[in-house]
Nucleic acid binder design. Sequence first.
DNA 1: ACCTGAACACCGTTCAAGT
DNA 2: ACCTGAACACCGTTCAAGT
Lengths: 211, 211
Amino acid sequence: MRKQYHHGDLKNALIRAGAELLASEGTAGLTLRKAARRAGVSHAAPYAHFADKQALVAAISTCGLWAVRDRIEEARQRHAGDPRRQLVEAAWGIVQFGLEQPDHYRVTFSHAVEQDPGYLDTAHGSFQALVGLVRSCQDAGVLAPGPPEQAAVALWSLVHGLVLLLINRQLPGRLLERIPPRRLLLRALGPHLRSAPARARRPGRNHPVVS
Amino acid sequence: MRKQYHHGDLKNALIRAGAELLASEGTAGLTLRKAARRAGVSHAAPYAHFADKQALVAAISTCGLWAVRDRIEEARQRHAGDPRRQLVEAAWGIVQFGLEQPDHYRVTFSHAVEQDPGYLDTAHGSFQALVGLVRSCQDAGVLAPGPPEQAAVALWSLVHGLVLLLINRQLPGRLLERIPPRRLLLRALGPHLRSAPARARRPGRNHPVVS
DNA sequence: ACCTGAACACCGTTCAAGT
DNA sequence: ACCTGAACACCGTTCAAGT
């Protein structure tokens, strides 16, 4: 039972501790010293694995980006062959992530994470996952033709802004009481979605409106 | 030349000092103690006017909300009789505000400001300004009919999300180099805007596409 | 009513020192 | 290579005291 400092993977332990702090105490509760304490280590130990607090925050944010990308890919798999549904459920998955873990979502897209190369790479990857989905929607006539990156920016902005306005309670309260988040999302996505194309993959069957 | 403590309006002086700190040092530089120092007062003096730091932040955020509302109303006045243009320029005004004063925009829509009653009232007012604009766009056939609040949520989300993704540099860099912000905004707004209605106010003249 | 100065707990960061 | 403990500067907040 000699002092072994730690279990050998302090870096990931700190990331997990930070995410837990985020869930239990909110953004203000995310502290290098608290994360170290929770990992059972001195307050200076994290500096052996992270250059500074921002580096830890960037690592936690990168996990959040993975979660977003996972939601997109999960929607694609669960609704294979139905690009419209893929897009709607991917967007809904992101909204759900924000509603379930608001503080994790906030730091994931917070400022001051800009410069971390790992974060930027992952952000790029998540965006590309959306671009891929947009492309298949365009092929199916669900989204208007055009540069897929620009359509992805529009959809990304829409979902991201909606999540933040929802979790920050910056929309009129009486509106949120009457209309559930999913309906708000569908209303917002509606203008971007085209009606079923003539060359639908299952001719003779109307595409049901997603609700 | 007796000690007069201050000029009698320390509260507004602190708000201005905070906004200046935001512009010069960024969000991390916004500190109660620095704001007090900049206002020429001891670090405990702010507590005579603000319950805590959040109350000062909420006051600064409220100023940001006024700026947003002003951009909307300014667009309405400058393009009277052209609802489509009013909507586009209002959105562009908000994007410009974000690009010009990114840190002010960030705190304006940051979390942890939720509970302040003055902030909530102002946020509601700004949202209603957008709802009014949406209504006139619907009357002119520029936006699809339907509950104007829900369309306002969609447009609000779109613009808000775009601003944050832009100022946080969370969109692919090579995309931002090729496509200016205004074009991204127009691309994002496009699917929401309808082509000129039959009952256009200036029949015989095609509505020019805003660019 | 408005402000000061000292005090407290907490934070991020650094660094010499230990294994 | 990995971690500790002391130290420093800075922060938000409180409070007795001054005018």
